[in-house]
Every structure is written in structure tokens, then in C-alpha cells.
């Protein structure tokens, strides 16, 4: 059992009548900190520690991995390890972590192909993050030299999406 809202309310009712300003409670399954807020009232900081009971294989037959934290590398919104671009080329980096799309919508023509001329503000891709479509401009005038990801692939923030050969 985790702590229910009613449990917290009970604890708070008890605490309210006592001269304490905070309470820390930790068991193997949860952690709870209640504090009197400076402006009045209480705050709650809680954490359910119990591991998920992931019991069944996924329906497609792939074995389920044990419960626990998922791999979140790359989604933190921080730049990925040095994107880098080969000499003389400019990298178009993902502004956010998300799904890379080459076209404005499924079935539409790609924004650009290798060899296309672009200006700095030519939109060359979309990165979808949290249901928002973020347009990615080329950033550098030149020609598209390489497209580094497949359409629909996930990209961490800062990763190189495309390489541009700058105008001389």
C-alpha cells in the first residue's frame, strides 16, 4: 500500500495541533516530508519508492524487462555529447529532444533533399516534442550535404540532424 490522501490528511490533522514545523517519514515503500510553509499552510513532498510490479510479457511476445526507471538518456533536454560536424560543414542541431520529421505531414514531400540549396531560415525539418511541432531552420546558407537521421527517428537535444555545406 502506498500512502493515501486520507492518510496524509490524518497525519496533517495531528501535526497541525503539535508545535512541529516538519515531519519526515520514510518506509521501504514511500517517503513523505510535510513542512509548514512560510506563508501559512503545509507542503508535501512525497515519493513512492515501491518498484512497479511488471509481471507480464508484452503482448507482442517481447519479454518484459523488470520494472524500474526507464532509459531516459537523451530526453533531459540537455545537449547531447558534442554533435560535431566534419570539417567545413555546419551541423543543424535538434533544438529539443523529440521525433525527427523530414516533411510537414505524413505523405507530404520532404522539406529538403540532399543537394538542395537553403538559406539560413529555410525550414529543413520538424522535431515533435510533447505534441508540439517545432520547425528547424537550416541556420546556415548553403546546400544540404547529408541527412543524418531517418524520418520518424527519435533525437536527443543538440544531436546533429543534418549537415550543411556553407556557401563559399
Amino acid at each position: 500500500m502506498d500512502l493515501t490522501n486520507a492518510d496524509v490528511a490524518d497525519i496533517l490533522a495531528l501535526l497541525d495541533s503539535l508545535p512541529y514545523d516538519s515531519l519526515d517519514l520514510e518506509t521501504s515503500r514511500f517517503r513523505l516530508t510535510l513542512r509548514r510553509a512560510p506563508g501559512g499552510g503545509w507542503t508535501e513532498e512525497s515519493q513512492v519508492l515501491a518498484e512497479p510490479s511488471t509481471v507480464t510479457a508484452a503482448p507482442d511476445g517481447t519479454p518484459a524487462t523488470a520494472g524500474g526507471a526507464p532509459d531516459i538518456s537523451g530526453i533531459s533536454g540537455e545537449a547531447a555529447a558534442e554533435a560535431g560536424a566534419p570539417d567545413g560543414l555546419a551541423a543543424v542541431a535538434a533544438p529539443l529532444p523529440g521525433t525527427f520529421y523530414r516533411a510537414p505531414r505524413p505523405g507530404a514531400d520532404p522539406f529538403v533533399q540532399v543537394g538542395d540549396a537553403v538559406s539560413a531560415d529555410t525550414v529543413v525539418a520538424i522535431v515533435e516534442t510533447m505534441k508540439l511541432m517545432n520547425s528547424v531552420p537550416a541556420g546556415t546558407p548553403g546546400r544540404v550535404s547529408r541527412i543524418c537521421l531517418e524520418n520518424g527517428e527519435f533525437t536527443p537535444a543538440g544531436a546533429t540532424l543534418m549537415l550543411i555545406e556553407p556557401d563559399a
Binding site: 511488471t54 518484459a64 524487462t65 526507464p70
Partner: peptide
């Protein structure tokens, strides 16, 4: 849950968790 939510709070609260993709 999806793989991205395998360690989420609802996964910790549910009696059982099934990864679906």
C-alpha cells in the same frame, strides 16, 4: 505503460503493470 513510463508513479501504484510498447 510504454517503455518511457515503466518507472512512473502510476506504475508504482498499480497492482500490476504491463509494458505495451
Amino acid at each position: 505503460v510504454s517503455d518511457a513510463d515503466a518507472g512512473s508513479l502510476p506504475a508504482r501504484l498499480a497492482d500490476q503493470v504491463i509494458r505495451i510498447g
